[in-house]
Every structure is written in structure tokens, then in C-alpha cells.
Design a binder for these strands. Sequence first.
DNA 1: CCCGTTATACTCAATATCAGTCTAAGCTGA
DNA 2: TCAGCTTAGACTGATATTGAGTATAACGGG
Lengths: 333, 333
Amino acid sequence: MSRAGRSAGRSASGSGQDAATVDLSAVIVAASPDGPLVLLRQIGGDLLPSLPSGPLEPRHRTIEAGLRSWVEELTGHSLGYVEQLYTFGDANRHASARGQTSRSLSIGYLALVRETRARQGDDIAWQSWYRFFPWEDMRAGAPQVMTRIREGIAGWIAEAPRDEREDRESRARAAFGAAGDRWNEELVLERYELLYEIGLVPEAHRDGAACWAPREAALTEAESLYSDHRRILATGISRLRGKIKYRPVVFELMQPRFTFLQLQRTVEALAGVELHKPNFRRLVEHQGLVEETGAVTSNTGGRPARLLRFRRDILREHPGTGVGLPPGRPRKT
Amino acid sequence: MSRAGRSAGRSASGSGQDAATVDLSAVIVAASPDGPLVLLRQIGGDLLPSLPSGPLEPRHRTIEAGLRSWVEELTGHSLGYVEQLYTFGDANRHASARGQTSRSLSIGYLALVRETRARQGDDIAWQSWYRFFPWEDMRAGAPQVMTRIREGIAGWIAEAPRDEREDRESRARAAFGAAGDRWNEELVLERYELLYEIGLVPEAHRDGAACWAPREAALTEAESLYSDHRRILATGISRLRGKIKYRPVVFELMQPRFTFLQLQRTVEALAGVELHKPNFRRLVEHQGLVEETGAVTSNTGGRPARLLRFRRDILREHPGTGVGLPPGRPRKT
DNA sequence: CCCGTTATACTCAATATCAGTCTAAGCTGA
DNA sequence: TCAGCTTAGACTGATATTGAGTATAACGGG
């Protein structure tokens, strides 16, 4: 009994299904003292950086196995945590694919690694993801680029047709927040898609999308990526920012032993917001996610700090706990 | 510039990528007064029910458009909320596909609809999803089947090799909870996968997986589904149960006007747990998700209830609110 | 008109969250 | 040596949220 025999019917009869080529794109994340890193390939001088990607081959038993296999081959280090993000597959994803019978699908994955030493001498490098999303880094308050974004959005709202105005206002408010609102760090994808639609990112023009802003208005403070890779990266950041709150995934990025502050800085780097130190400490302690190693480190710049380790057994005990973002530290401005 | 030219390299050279056939499977959910419903097809007498699925075709601009298109054709009503779940694609997903160069991928979707009138005279019908996951319905306390499950798990733990014992114990505890633990209704997939691994569901044997329990030990209280469709359904239930807590998706299943209790019963049906009425009410009121219509209904069996409607505008204002599960009503036993 | 049933409004304690302050303990450099 | 910097880590108090229970209101049916 064939699978096609059970499907919707009309199209399955006769010619059978059409084939698609499938490749796997990986958002590979590591954490450095300075910020969150993502692994990118830069091929040639004129091309935009791209996420590492490779084809799904028949020899791979599962999709995830395929991903692990070629990423490990490419980067030289093995992936710890791996999670499927989304399958992208618009028919017009590549202009060249239009009209062909073959469609190209791309399955996005999020992977977390502890090491940041990529295989040397390659065209591959770690980069801060805020290079591509500077507006997502609110750790030192709203960055420069945000004023340009708000101007752009204001213009887009101001020039809206009468019946679209309210809609645009509320969409902008939802994504970027109003004056007094708390910044919602999870809405990375929503914000990117709004900027795309308005035309403030160059790829909107590259893709030939109809948008409000002229090509010259695109933000120059943020770098673009190949094809739709900036969207995939946004999806990965969104997912990761959401997940650290209810699953202890941060520890996949930490060294085996770390201090409270190092843990906090990592969470802050990923979430792009600053946290209140005592509350963060209390939260982590309270959840029983870490235990003391007994050792201390004195390269803190101040009083020596206790070194902690992640309690691996917690993964099994409470599948529903994470580090959480104990609400931003109030900013004095 | 071809996409292959940017990919991992080794395999892309020469023969190019291998093609895959892609079909879309939908977990289509509706809510009835009695419980959560899922749309299933039953073809012939000897076959297991299956999720509606259809091929992805070149004419579909996006994957989601493809899904909507054939589901609407098949079922006769249009989908409201649609969300991609996961892409499944083990090479040995079908025994017949083993050794072939062509792989079959299946992209799972979750869809929510308000109507439950399927096109009549068809091989398609709504069924309570608890028919396939009776252990997930804890509304009236732990169901019968749970004792059989606990027995099975106990045996699996008891007969574990010395070094695996602790691991099995903690996995079982994580999925099904220990004595005093609160039931975590989101772990639908984890529980299913544990049962699969132990061999308590018939498909584990059908797939030829090596498992502890003999084929005869498989639970007869739960019905099986075609291929891996029970796993896809579990993924859908998990996702939906998680999502109602932080996004107002329940309202996609409600009629335009409803009472508090109807809303509560729907959430309870989905989550499979009973809720504390006053707290549920307070939570929903507090979040401003609903507004009064002014009308009342008196077919409540008691005092007439106010009819509410969902505040659609909230979708834009607060992208981060949901109905939430204001934790269970204590059970007197 | 009592009674079962559901609706809706309150109450109260326990806990969690938010935003501070305060002391401890290292290092540095006058 | 010790004042002054830095970070670590403990503690405090106000407020908000949660969990669970109680009380009253309004219908319909016998």
C-alpha cells in the first residue's frame, strides 16, 4: 500500500508526487564573554555571509543525523543540543526556481555548542548575531539604530491609507512596544518581518517585495545575509530566547564550571537585556538547577566567586524548568 | 549561482542533491462540548485511521498555502489558525522506502477550526483524540488505563540492567510524574515516546523496534493510527497544550459568543485537566482577553450566564498573552 | 417554594516577583 | 598599610500573583 494512495486524491492520481530537493540550514550558536555567536560562512568577497547548510542525503537515517553529520564534518566540533526550527519552502524562494517542477525546501535547525574554535583556515567564522540584528541588543539601553527604525515606522504609519492606519499602529506597537511597555525580547521574528514588510532591510528589495520604503532607506547599521538566512536566524534567536525561560538550555553553552555572573552574562547576551543580579541569583538557586563544585575562582576583578556546575540530573527530574528572565534591571536615564 | 554551490561541499559535487517526495499531514482540531476532536480518515475496514494528508505540489506558492488548499478541498471548511509542527523524515519511515534513493518527508501541521460539520458521505470523521491517548485525559482523575501503564513501566524498570535502572526510573518520573507531583499535561510526546520505547503501543512492534514488552502487552485501551500518525498527533496535542498558555489560541475553537464556563470546559478538554473555576475566571478577566456582549444565555442549567466575545484587537496589542492554566482543582480522593 | 444547579463575587493565606540596600572579600596603587 | 575600586553574595520590604475556599445570586423543576 503506497502512501500516495491515502492522500488527498485528486493530485495523487496519475502522475504521482513531484520531487523536491531538501537542504538543511543550521543556526549554530555559542556564547562568548562578549556576546552570542553564530557560525557563518563567507564565500568570496561579493557574496553575503550564509548559514552553514548542506544537502539531506539518502544515507542519513534521520534528518537530524544528516545535519549532525555534515556540520561536524564542516566545523570540526560535535553538536550538543540540536532542535528543528522550521521548514521553509516558498515556491519563489529563489528566483531561479520559479517555473521549475522541482521545489527546494530548507529545513532550519538550531544547534548549541560549547566550543568556539572553528576549524581554522576555512571560510567560516563566528560572528555576534547582533551584527545582523543590532536592534535586538538592548543590554546597554536602546541602541542607535532604534531611532532610525522608529522614524521609519513613524513614516510608514503616517503615510498609511486611512483604513490601514490603526492596523499599522498596533502592529508596530506589538512588535517594538510602546513608550512605557516592557521590551519583549522574544519577538525577534515579528520585528524582522515588520522591517522586511516596510522595506527597511535590503533583502526586501532584493526579493522584489512591494514595500513602502525606498531601497536607499534600508538600514545600513545591520548586515544582511544570503537568501532568506536572516529570517532563519531570526527564527533561531526567537526560539532560543523563548526556550531559555522554560528549559535549562543555557547550560549547553556554558563551560562545565562557571560563576553566577558568567551564567547571568550569558543569559543577558542571548536575551539582549540586562537582568537584576540578586533576583537572577535567587531564581537560579531556587530552581535547583546548579550545585556548587566547592572550588572558587578569583579572576573576577573583585571578591572571588564560587564555581558552579549544572545539575545534569535535573534534566530528567523536572522537564519543565528553565533559567528564566527575572525581569530587567531598571535603567537610569 | 546555485544553492548547491554554497553547501557543505563533498556531497554536492558531482551528482547533485537527491530528491525527496513531500507530503503534508494535518492535525485538524475542533472542540465539542464533550471533548477535543481531531479529523481522521478511515479507508477500508482493515486499515488504521490516518491524519488527512496530501502532497505538496509545485503550484502551491507556500507550504502552508498547499496545506490550506487541499484540506479545504477535502473537508469542505476553511482553516483558521494554521501552524507548522515538525518535519518528519526518518529514512526507514516506511519499510518500502528502505534502500530507495528517494526519501519521503512529511511536514506536520496543526490547524484549528470552529466548525465540526465535515463534508458528509465521506470516509472522514471527527474523533475525540483521547481515543488514541486515553492516558492524557485526567479530567476525571487518573483513567483506568493508567494503572496498566504504571504496571508496565514498573516491570520495565524492575527488569532493567543494573546500570540502566536509575535512568529508566528518572525518565518514567519525568514523563508520568511521581506520586505527589503535579501532572504536566504538556508532555504528551514524551509519554508517547516512552510507551513506544517500552513497547506498550502496537506500532512499536509493527515498526519492528526492539522493545522490552512483548507484542501482547500493548495497551488495548488505546487505538493506534496509520504509520507514525499517532506520533504526529502527539506532537500536535503537545504544541496546542503548550500554546494555550501564552497565546489566545483557544478562541480559534470557540463560537463567536460563549460563556465563561464554556471557555473553561474547552481549555479543560484540550489540557485534559480540571481547573479551579473562580481562578480561571479571574485570570481570563484580568488579561482582558474577552469583553461582554451584553447578552445572556439561560440554557446553563442554573443561573443565566453572560455571553462573552473574544477581543480580537488584543491579538495585536499583547502578542504574549494566553489563557493559561490556573492550576488544577484539587481532587478529592 | 424548597432544592439542585450554575453564575459571579469575595476573602485570605502562601508564594513569587521586583527593586532595592548592605556587608564581604578580593585587588590596586598611593 | 590602607583607601578605594571591583565583584560576590546575603538580606529586606513592597507589591503582585497564585491557590484554594466561601458566600451570595438567579434560574428551573418538582
